[in-house]
């Protein structure tokens, strides 16, 4: 589904150069649920932005769904984002003056679906996240968990192959976080690939596979775990 090889990304200001990613390589198979973890500043958000075609990269190669995306223009990238990728953000990022219906409608508009098709998809998506009865509400009238479910509905309405979730439960209490997580697991079971950035180890553990990012590079997770276990044992033994 996604294949990155030796991706590098450098942020430059007048004074400093920051290597956000260096030699970043990652492969995600169709239908996987991958959690990307790492401390803040490690480059995991940069990875997500590049993977989601929201940002360019400086070096390396990136194949998305078998297609080389490194030389696409803005219009082509927008089309791929629209059709193949669904985004879920930590801050929900609903548009405050649009009601739920219109929020879910946004990606469908840019897709160019007919009114009937859009209407069908919006209803299905909102019903799937359990908010079918509140379509005319504004985001501000909902709780955080509900808002995130709307965001999930919005991400799903266009039936993407890949969902990118950036700390999807970061702003939610644990009960709501669990509900959202269950929703994501359901989606994944139906065949959608999910890449989730999180720093919550408990959430990460529920994914099929964990990828740890450190200083802009993927570190071998098993080694990391072994090292961690060793420290644990040392501590117990000590």
């Amino acid at each position: 589904m996604l294949k990155m090889q030796n991706i590098s990304k450098v942020y430059r200001t007048d004074l400093v150069q920051t290597h956000a990613l260096r030699d970043f390589s990652l492969e995600v198979a169709e239908g996987e649920f991958v959690a990307v973890t790492g401390p803040s500043g490690s480059g995991k958000t940069t990875f997500l932005n590049i993977a989601g075609l929201l940002e360019d990269f400086d070096g390396g190669s990136y194949l998305l769904d078998g297609e080389d995306v490194s030389n696409l223009n803005d219009n082509q990238r927008s089309k791929i984002r629209n059709a193949k990728i669904g985004f879920i953000f930590q801050g929900f990022n609903l548009i405050p003056d649009l009601n739920l219906w219109d929020n879910v409608d946004v990606p469908l508009r840019y897709r160019g679906f007919s009114a009937a098709e859009r209407s069908k998809r919006i209803k299905e998506a909102l019903e799937m996240v359990g908010l079918g009865s509140r379509m005319k509400h504004l985001p501000s009238q909902l709780s955080g968990g509900q808002q995130q479910r709307v965001a999930i509905a919005r991400a799903l309405a266009g039936t993407p192959r890949l969902i990118m979730a950036d700390e999807p439960t970061g702003n939610l209490d644990s009960l709501m976080a669990r509900q959202v997580m269950e929703l994501l697991e359901n989606i994944n079971e139906q065949g959608t690939t999910i890449i989730m950035v999180t720093h919550d180890p408990e959430l990460a553990r529920r994914a099929h596979r964990n990828v740890h990012v450190m200083d802009g590079q993927v570190t071998d997770f098993t080694e990391f775990e072994r090292a961690a276990n060793k420290r644990e044992r040392d501590a117990l033994g000590g």
């Binding site: 989601g52 927008s78 629209n82 985004f87 990022n93 946004v106 266009g158």
Partner: peptide, 16 residues
Amino acid sequence: AGDISVRRALGASRLD
């Protein structure tokens, strides 16, 4: 800019 960025992420091109 926030709203616009969300629209961009959801598939709006610059031209849109």
